[in-house]
Amino acid sequence: MRGMAAFRERALARVRRWKEIYEGIYMVPYRTAIQREWRRQRDILFVLGFSDLLGVPSPVQLYTLELIPEVLEQFHSWHLRMGMEEPPEGGFRCC
């Protein structure tokens, strides 16, 4: 019985591996284009939602601050990408 269970486990692992390869082949050719577009749209969202941090008054800042827990990690990569080594004044303590 133990042999059967081990065989089943090995077979399932193999199926999972082939499925990953199969799905990987779907994603790879256009991953860069899709990720770039996704990043561009996210950057626009950050500018619109947190423009206060860049010195542009935003009437919705009070509400968008609620997004902090959701976007903390992305906020860090965003300010680095925008050329700011440190998070902008009044921003989140992300690094």
């Binding site: 390869i21 990987g24 082949i25 790879v28 860069t32 990043r39």
Partner: peptide, 19 residues
Amino acid sequence: GVDFLPTNRHVLFGHHFTS
């Protein structure tokens, strides 16, 4: 995660071959 991402060699082969 955008341009640069280590990828399984079989996945990369599938991408390269079909391209």
